[in-house]
Amino acid sequence: MIELPQLVRDFASALQTADAKRPQATSPTKRTYQPGIGPHTEQDTIKLVLNELADLSPGYRKDGLNVRYPGTSRQRCDWCLGEPPSWDWAIEAKMLRLFGDNGKPNDNMLTRVLSPYPAHGSALTDCDKLVSSTLPGRKAILIFGYDYKEQKVEMEMEPAIQAFETLARLRVNLGDRFVATYDQLVHPVHKRGRVFAWEIASRE
């Protein structure tokens, strides 16, 4: 079984490897963004990372994305590791990208991490969804994103991560924080960042 500290290190390494291939994302209006993994959507970034991870270990299965929660028709778990159907890990992943491709602040991004409303599908409400589910295996929350030091308004992930930890501990048993960094990325705005993960369990 892949343990969480190793998964975090592998995710960071695979993200950097995927970025070095200079992938280019496109907007819904078909605008092509600048090269680099940074402008890609959350789902597309995870796919790019998993393509690289699959070469590292058989535990990183390409068919482990968007696994249906038992007993539901629509809800999907972002990422499962191990062998189906008795997965080792069920992981919900969120991206924290506080600036856009154009270098302007993305003011709505914190909703994806901190919103208490299930309709927003935040990392916070994903905690509840995971621990109340009957998906097999251990449960974890993963947040990846970018730190900005060269912008007119400096923004790093740490304050948002601390806020998430404070709120999540009111809802679930939050395990130790594991973190890995990546830097020297291709994109001129999304140059560096970190990936964080915590194992979670019911407060009961």
Results as ranks from 00 to 15, higher is better:
Lys191Ile: 05
Pro159Ile: 08
Val67Cys: 05
Leu4Gly: 08
Ala25Cys: 08
Arg68Gly: 03
Leu174Ala: 04
Arg68Lys: 15
Glu204Leu: 11
Arg192Pro: 00
Ile2Cys: 06
Tyr117Pro: 00
Gly100Gln: 13
Thr26Gly: 00
Thr166Gly: 01
Pro136Met: 06
Leu48Ala: 11
Val113Met: 12
Val49Pro: 02
Thr41Phe: 06
Val113Thr: 11
Met157Trp: 03
Val131Phe: 11
Arg97Asp: 02
Glu42Ile: 03
Glu158Pro: 00
Ala201Ser: 15
Leu81Ser: 05
Glu3Arg: 13
Ala160Glu: 07
Ser115Glu: 07
Ser202Tyr: 00
Arg138Glu: 13
Gly121Ile: 10
Tyr148Trp: 11
Glu165Leu: 09
Ala168Trp: 02
Lys149Leu: 14
Met157Pro: 09
Gly36Val: 08
Gly137Asn: 04
Val153Gly: 07
Gln6Leu: 08
Ser122Tyr: 08
Tyr146Thr: 03
Leu174Phe: 08
Met155Arg: 15
Tyr33Glu: 13
His187Lys: 05
Asp147Cys: 06
Thr41Trp: 08
His120Phe: 08
Ala18His: 10
Trp87Ser: 10
Ser73Gly: 02
Lys149Phe: 08
Ser27Ala: 15
Trp79Thr: 07
Thr17Met: 11
Arg61Tyr: 02
Tyr146His: 07
Gln6Lys: 13
Ile161Leu: 07
Lys191Ser: 12
Gln34Asp: 03
Phe164Arg: 01
Gln6Arg: 13
Val67Pro: 04
Asp128His: 09
His120Gly: 00
Asp78Val: 01
Lys94Gln: 12
Asp55Arg: 13
Arg9Gly: 11
Glu204Arg: 13
Ala54Leu: 00
Lys104Thr: 14
Met95Asp: 00
Arg203Lys: 14
Thr125Leu: 05
Ala25Val: 11
Glu42Thr: 03
Ser133Thr: 06
Val49Gly: 05
Val153Cys: 01
His187Asp: 14
Arg74Trp: 11
Ile91Tyr: 04
Leu4Tyr: 10
Glu154Ser: 12
Pro35Leu: 05
Leu48Pro: 04
Asp101Met: 04
Arg203Phe: 01
Ala119Pro: 00
Glu42Phe: 03
Asp183Asn: 12
Tyr117Gly: 00
Glu83Ile: 14
Leu124Tyr: 09
Pro105Trp: 08
Glu3Lys: 13
Glu204His: 12
Arg171His: 10
Leu142Pro: 06
Pro188Asn: 11
Tyr33Leu: 06
Leu110His: 06
Tyr146Arg: 07
Met1Lys: 09
Arg138Lys: 15
Ala25Phe: 04
Arg31Ser: 10
Val179Gln: 15
Ile200Gly: 06
Gln184Cys: 13
Arg9Leu: 12
Asp88Gly: 01
Gln6Ser: 13
Met109Ile: 15
Arg138Tyr: 00
Asp10Leu: 05
Phe196Ser: 04
Glu165His: 01
Lys62Cys: 10
Pro85Cys: 03
Lys62Tyr: 01
Asp44Gln: 15
Gln162Ala: 14
Ile37Asn: 04
Pro70Phe: 12
Lys94Asn: 06
